[in-house]
Write a protein that binds this DNA or RNA. Structure first.
Lengths: 354, 354
DNA sequence: TTGAAAGCGCTAACAA
DNA sequence: TTGTTAGCGCTTTCAA
């Protein structure tokens, strides 16, 4: 404590001390002074004074008056997944580059909660909203539209606003081919050896199922039925699905595709109850990237969506204000087993090592 | 599009339509109406009208007037680690319970950046700040103090403000004992077989080193020297440390303690370049929790800090406004290998499975 | 090249 | 029990 906790300086303080009017001070400090033909000398004086008094503008006042808050929102389902936390990280960097303050919130895959948290953002008049992985993007769209807030969907498309998504179908196809090819090296494989677990009835999952079947058909000439199990985005339901399969067949499928890292956690739970034997000859694909997944005791192929590019396109869309909703598709990356990719923070972390 | 994008309703709109004055409307809508002795009937009428017009208060105006913004800040080093993303998730829940809007920012372990991002929060007059894992908590403290913003340190203590931290020393001691006990089951072990990698010269790392040596001394009677390697919080530096060790000894240590999941990623990178033989008989401890880490092809013990409790104590401290800085220590949890703990979101995810 | 003045939407004395 | 009034700190015409 002991610090000088005096009120923050305002433009009126600067106005007093500089002899200039408050409006002049305001113009100098928010960069519009050239336009207002204020002399460079005056500007310099005021800037120097501002620095000396450590002036920073009150954003609430600015927002109230100009009705632009300088806040950019990102709606996530959850944070604690590699995919979404990377997205938060990347979003923060990109928002700051545009001198916006990022506000990240999570809707917990509950349409009600999604609406509530977005309304809490709307109450702060955020300037724009990125909707990532919402259960009900169109519901969220409606609350944004009612408040006149520009918004884009990221990773999961909506009908009513522009969207930037991963190429789920091609990604799933490539992933499926990769695990089948790998599994075949261990001996002949039939379509019945190739399963898919996780996901639910959303756009991404549907596209991935299509890609999954496309790859099976290309390779085997047929896709066999009953080879996908919809478990929602739930670790425990996914674990149960594995238990059921195991109880029925006395083994896991030779080769399977897991819909996301959240579902992958279901496999981890299953692993907790079974010995290493059980996993001796399986080959797994996961439509998500987590560096730890890559080093499990069996081969794991993963798909990493290109988050940086998705967000960049999202900002582009907001800048250009299209009349009709656009759909932009971004190619994801296939990550082979035992690969530790560098993240967006790697240079930071490295720089940081003393 | 096509939506009715009309201006949001204000208390004046409600005042007009209800016949009551703006201040009455305001009092009703912000809950102070009992105190102002406004009749229940009036309150009811106005509330109903507000609902009908979907009124929500303009938080900027409220903040400007009342100088309380309703924003609660959390400063993290990075998001994309299980520990910090769980913290963000838990923080959001707890902030919302107190009807605050959580704003999470990352300082990237750079004192400069930390100050900058905190200043950006101060510009929005956040009501309080949680400082988690800052490189320079006291620097951040100074900018908060200058602006009169209440703040607490979480997980890493500061000298100048109250702090809630994990019991790093006892946690490290328990972790070290656990890995030594486990490794001894595979044959006799000498103190030279037990190493520590990662961390740097901060409070947490120092405490962990003390706990690490305490455990070794308790078990072996001596701690041997040169058994810790400071790599910073950098995956690549940690990977290099493993490479160096391997080059010198032709193997990894039988038993080692990794300071955090970020350093653990260094081991993953090392794994990418070496075959499974190399990891056949090692036992690893990690002072951090990641569900994937638990299922690597060798035993991994982990320590999970009790994030929920740390944040709760943090909010308590802010509520009670102590004059002198307090230090609160929270016991972390030891997680044995092949354990998939449930997270704070588990019920949500499960509920979610259809 | 600059200043005066109005007002963004809300809260909180103070009056009535 | 309710209304009037004066700002919070800023932006933005409009006038000088």
């Amino acid at each position: 404590m002991s610090e000088n906790e005096h009120r923050k300086a305002t433009i009126y303080d600067l106005s007093m001390k500089s002899g200039a009017s408050a409006s002049t001070v305001s113009a100098v400090l928010n960069g519009t002074w050239q336009k207002r033909r204020i002399s460079a000398e005056t500007a310099r004086r005021i800037t120097a004074l501002a620095e000396e008094l450590k002036y920073t503008a009150n954003q609430q006042a600015r927002a109230l008056r100009s009705s632009r808050s300088g806040l950019a929102g990102l709606l996530l389902p959850v944070y604690d997944t590699r995919f979404f936390s990377s997205m938060a990280q990347t979003f923060e960097a990109q928002a700051r580059q545009r001198s916006l303050l990022p506000v990240v919130v999570s809707g917990r895959r509950d349409p009600e909660e999604e609406r509530r948290v977005v309304e809490s953002l709307v109450a702060y008049s955020i300037d724009s909203l990125f909707i990532a992985g919402a259960t009900d993007p169109d519901g969220v769209h409606r609350v944004c539209a009612a408040a006149g807030i520009p918004h884009v969907n990221i990773d999961l498309p909506g009908e009513l606003a522009s969207s930037v998504i991963s190429d789920n179908r091609q990604g799933a196809r490539a992933l499926t081919k990769a695990i089948i090819d790998h599994a075949r090296q261990g001996g002949p494989l039939s379509p019945d050896d190739v399963y898919m677990f996780g996901g639910r009835d959303d756009h991404a999952s549907r596209e991935r199922v299509i890609g999954f079947h496309a790859a099976k058909t290309e390779i085997f000439g047929t896709a066999s039925g009953g080879d996908t199990e919809n478990t929602g985005y739930s670790p425990s339901m996914t674990a149960l699905a594995f238990e059921r399969f195991y109880a029925r067949h006395g083994r896991l499928p030779r080769c399977f595709f897991i819909n996301s890292s959240i579902n992958f956690e279901g496999l981890l739970r299953f692993m907790g109850g079974h010995d290493e034997q059980t996993f001796a000859d399986i080959v797994v694909g996961c439509f998500d990237y987590d560096p730890f997944g890559s080093f499990l005791p069996f081969p794991v192929y993963m798909i990493r969506p290109d988050i940086t590019k998705m967000l960049e396109r999202g900002f582009d869309l907001l800048d250009h204000e299209n009349a009709t909703p656009h759909l932009i598709t971004i190619e994801p990356q296939l990550v082979p087993p035992r690969t530790a990719l560098k993240g967006p923070l790697d240079e930071l972390r490295d720089k940081d090592a003393r």
